[in-house]
Amino acid sequence: MNIEVRHATDPGSVETATTAQLRSRYLIEDLFAPGEVRAVYTHEDRMVVAGAVPDGAPLALPAWDALGTEHPLERRELGVINLGDAGEVVVDGTAHKLGTLDGLYAGRGSTITLSGAGACFYLVSAPADATHPTVTFGRDTIEPVRIGDPATASARSLYRYVWGGGHPSCRLQFGVTVVDAGSVWNTMPAHLHDRRTEVYLYTGLPADARVVHLLGRPGATRHLIVRDRQAVIAPAWSVHSGAGTAPYAFVWAMSGENTDYGDLQGVPMEAL
């Protein structure tokens, strides 16, 4: 099965890229189509991001050629977030129900089937060298971390699903952040992850709303205009921050050589 492959990029290329080049390298625009599983394989920490929209029939993960394995999770772990109406993820024959913005982690070697009329599943995968058990995360049962401030238009709720301080994983971390009504910034001040790649998937945006997403090295940033259910790849050297024109949420997912959620480098405002 085909999968779009994107190669790793260097920091300097961002500063001279055209808008079209930036979008083709970092923006993932069309992950979700009824009855399909669409995916992008990035050489940045070898992450896979995918969208699965069951349309009257269950969907299984394809054996993507780029992975070089007969089974899509033969050497990988998986995170799933449901962006749509209630759906079901079957892991090794056991069904798990996911509501809107609920999550699931499945360990290396798992067999996955996704179903549900109106469900829309976002999937993130990373290489794994150990197997950890399946677990589900209900957004309504996770106590969020409150961060930001209304005074700086950055108040938001951080829901940590797999993050290094809870359920174990090999390299993968993921969760959901919901921006408060009246706030616009999803991450500000900005920061870097020198040892991890991060992908943002925006969700909950009205059709006429957009997020202005910043990327690149501090002091030399560029921007992308992002619609609902589009994702942005942030290499380890790039900031990843955005401001929306309407209320929204985003799924964050990381992979790299460690799972210490707090292992980041803050970028002071004067460095931008």
Rank of each mutant, 00 (worst) to 15 (best):
A119T: 06
S115Q: 15
P144Y: 09
P127H: 06
D263T: 04
V124H: 07
L123N: 12
G103R: 03
T152W: 02
W185M: 00
F137I: 13
L67T: 04
Y202N: 05
P54S: 10
S241M: 05
H132P: 11
A126N: 07
V267K: 02
E36S: 11
I81C: 11
C170K: 01
W163C: 12
H132T: 11
P218F: 08
A151D: 15
A271L: 12
W163R: 07
P34K: 01
T131A: 12
T177G: 00
G118S: 02
V211W: 00
A253D: 14
E270K: 08
Y159L: 09
Q173W: 01
E77Q: 10
T94H: 14
L201K: 03
S125W: 01
V162Q: 07
A126W: 00
P34Y: 01
A52M: 13
A86W: 03
S169H: 09
P54Y: 09
N258M: 07
P133F: 04
E15F: 09
R139D: 05
D85S: 14
G256E: 07
E77V: 02
L61Y: 13
L192D: 08
E29Q: 14
R210L: 06
T42I: 02
P127M: 01
L98W: 04
I81T: 14
H132Q: 12
G103F: 04
V232M: 04
P34C: 05
V89Q: 12
L224Y: 05
D45C: 09
D45N: 15
V49L: 06
D194I: 04
L31M: 11
V226N: 04
R229A: 12
L215E: 05
G118L: 01
R76A: 01
A253V: 03
V40K: 08
D129Q: 12
Q265L: 13
P58D: 13
G244T: 03
Y261C: 07
D10G: 09
V89C: 15
A253K: 09
V53I: 11
I225E: 14
R160S: 06
S238Y: 04
R160M: 08
H96D: 12
A253P: 13
P268W: 06
D102C: 04
W64K: 07
T19G: 14
G266T: 10
Y122L: 11
S255L: 02
H213Y: 14
S24W: 01
A153Q: 14
V89D: 11
T141V: 13
R38S: 07
G68R: 07
A234N: 15
H213Q: 15
R210I: 01
D149H: 12
S157Y: 02
P72G: 08
A181H: 08
V239Y: 04
P268T: 11
A106F: 04
Q173G: 10
T259P: 07
R195P: 00
A231V: 03
P58W: 11
D263Y: 12
R38N: 14
T131L: 06
P62V: 08
G103C: 10
S24G: 04
S115Y: 01
A50G: 12
G109I: 05
R171V: 02
F250M: 05
A66D: 09
M47N: 10
L83D: 10
H193G: 09
V199H: 04
P72E: 12
A66V: 13
G216I: 08
A243Q: 10
T203Y: 00
H71E: 15
R146W: 12
H193I: 07
V251P: 07
V53Q: 14
T16W: 12
Y248A: 03
T197D: 01
A52V: 10
I112L: 11
N186F: 00
I142N: 06
T113V: 14
